[in-house]
Structure formats: structure tokens, C-alpha cells
Design a protein around this nucleic acid. Sequence first.
DNA 1: ACCGTAACGCTAACCGTTAGTGTTTTGAAT
DNA 2: ATTCAAAACACTAACGGTTAGCGTTACGGT
Lengths: 191, 191
Amino acid sequence: MAETPGRRERKKAATRRTIADAALRLFFERGYDAVGIRDVAAEADVAVTTLFSHFASKEALVFDQDESVERRLVAAATEREPGEGLVAALRRETHALVRHCTAGAAADLWRMIDATEALRRYEMAMRRRHAEALAEALAGAAPDHGEVARQALARFVVDAFGVARTAEDPAAAVDEVFHMIDAAWAAAGSS
Amino acid sequence: MAETPGRRERKKAATRRTIADAALRLFFERGYDAVGIRDVAAEADVAVTTLFSHFASKEALVFDQDESVERRLVAAATEREPGEGLVAALRRETHALVRHCTAGAAADLWRMIDATEALRRYEMAMRRRHAEALAEALAGAAPDHGEVARQALARFVVDAFGVARTAEDPAAAVDEVFHMIDAAWAAAGSS
DNA sequence: ACCGTAACGCTAACCGTTAGTGTTTTGAAT
DNA sequence: ATTCAAAACACTAACGGTTAGCGTTACGGT
């Protein structure tokens, strides 16, 4: 799908990328709080209103992969291999997400996020959305469990990501937390 | 401690309460978003800057019991009865907190919170703080477990509160989620 | 009685965000 | 080819939460 997006959409995507690039450049140079929306718009050479037609908020300039993460989490729950258990699939995806966050250029970004109040807040709201989306997906993927148990599992998985991201050994932390989640999920089944 | 707070502190407390009362009155009358900070200040007959010297933000006007909840959670972990297990103490406290949120006049407040974006966000940030405070308390209360397991437990407990608060049967939901947490915590011990 | 301090007030502004309005570009239908 | 509706983009102006700067008053300890 979407092999020839058309000129309009290409231009739109280009503008979006121009804005995001300008924003990250300035944020890394001067720090997130020291850069205003008007600065970003000027650097990208667009109007402020144009910027907000591409990004819903200042924080959204930083969390651009947002929806992608959500989709991956949901996909891990709904489109898993026949032989793989639900929790195992979620653990595998969490491993991948954590690896992605702690390696390479993304690490700098997350350092900035952790150092900035407003961004930490946005991250929380984001994760809440992810947990809600995952809980909804679980309704189809684990109909034999109750709503409460599914909601808890969804939050626990998102927590695992949060805990592991800041742990000394992220990969080991994912395994450790998922060991706990495994037990919790098993206990939920035998209620 | 603090049996005779002195006139100054009494006046300060009175001003604070006047502001909070005025705010809640207006919020319930017109809705949170329809009331401006300048409206609240006028209703309480104080300057806007005075309002912000008592409350850090508009949302803080609604979440006034904030620190109390945090203290109770921490106390449940650190000052429990000798015969009571750690998770059992946290479950008991969570039961009490949920009951407090879903009964009486507080229920109206939480209805407003759930209906307002900005307040839901603040609640998330608040809960994150609670989880962090609890995790720190757990370092002393459960030194035989690793840092990762303690952080996970802290988040799970706060999740239990969040899941139960909106469940059909809040009390049963607390028990259900804590049954999962029990299993998770036991699994963390035998890693 | 005195002085440092903290509460309170006022003005003015900053910053993220949005409404209102108009212009240009683009894709598609005629 | 021409025309048309939609969408991107821009500009101005404002709104609402929040803060800085500065002055005034009331309190509490000495």
C-alpha cells in the first residue's frame, strides 16, 4: 500500500521531516526548554500554525515513533506465531523495543527525555495510551481471561519497558520483569 | 508536633483552603476547562501570584490529597505489623485507597478527573511519583530482592490502584490484581 | 521596639496553543 | 485544457497557564 503517495503527500512528508529535523537540531544544541516553538518554526522556515498542523504539541516533535511503538505492541499480541505463547511474544517485542531505545543515536534522545520534566510527562501519557491499546488487543488475544487481568497484564508489560529502559543491564531486566509477569499471568488464569 | 502553628501559618492555611474551596466550587459549577486561573483567583479574592504560591499548578488545585496518598503507600511498606507480609500490607492499603476514591463526595471529583484530559495526565504523573517513592521505600523494606524486582513491584501496585479504580467491582479487582502481584513477587524471589 | 522574613499584591510579560482568515498548491473531474 | 474542491501553508491576534520583578504589609523572634 501507498507505493506512489503523490506529490502532495511527498511534500507534506518532506515538510514534516524538515520541521522534526530542525527541532531536534535546536533541542540538542540549546536544550529542550531553552528552545521555543517560534524558534523551531523559524529554523524550519515555516509558520507556527504549519508546525502545529504537523505535530500536535511541542513534545510530539520528540516522540515521533510514538504510533509505531503502539502498533508493534499490538501486533505482538495479535499476530504472533502459532507456537509462541502470548507473554513470550510480548517479551520478545519488549526486548526489541528496549534494544532500540538504548543503542545508537536514540540513546542521546532518551537522555534528553529523562532530563526534561515535560518530556517525561509526555512519555507517561504515551505509555498509558500504549497500555490501553494493548489491553484492547488482549481482549481478542486472551478471551479466556477477565478484563481486569488483561488490563493488569497490559500495564505490567508497559512497566517492564519502563523499568528495563533505565536499568543497568536492560536486557537482563526485561527477562527479570517478564519472569514476574509470567507468574502473574499464570496466577490470573487459575483464579 | 505543630500543636500551636502560630497566626501566620494559620492564615496561610486558611488562604490555601479558601483558594481550594473556591476552585472546586467553580470547577463543579462550570467544568474544569471552562474555569480560568484568573476566575479562581477572583472568586477566592486573592492575586494570581498568590494562588501560585500555594499551588504549583492549576491541576494541583484538584489533587490536594496527593502527598497524603504517597505517604500512606510508603508507610504501608515500611511500618507494617510484624506478622503482615509486604504484599499483604500493600494490598490492604490499596483497598483503603480505592474505597476512599469510589465512595461519597470523592466519587464526583474522580468523575471530573476522568472526564478531563489535563487532569488525567496529571494523575499519571502523580502515580509515577508514587511508584518512585514506593520503590525507594521498598529498598529498605525488601533488601533481599533486586532493584529491578522492587521497581516492578512498585509499579504493579500503583497499576493495581489504577485498574481497580475504574473496574466494575473495585474491591474484587484489587484482590484479583494482587493475586497476580503475589505470584509475581514470589517468582522474583526465586530468580 | 526592631528587624528579617514570609505572605500577599500588582504589572507585565513569556510561551504553548488555537481561532479566524486568506492564499497558494495539488489532484481529480469535466 | 479548464475548472473546482480540498488541503497545505501563512499571517495576525489572541487566549490561558505560568513566572519574573518589584513593592507592601503583617508576623515572629530577639
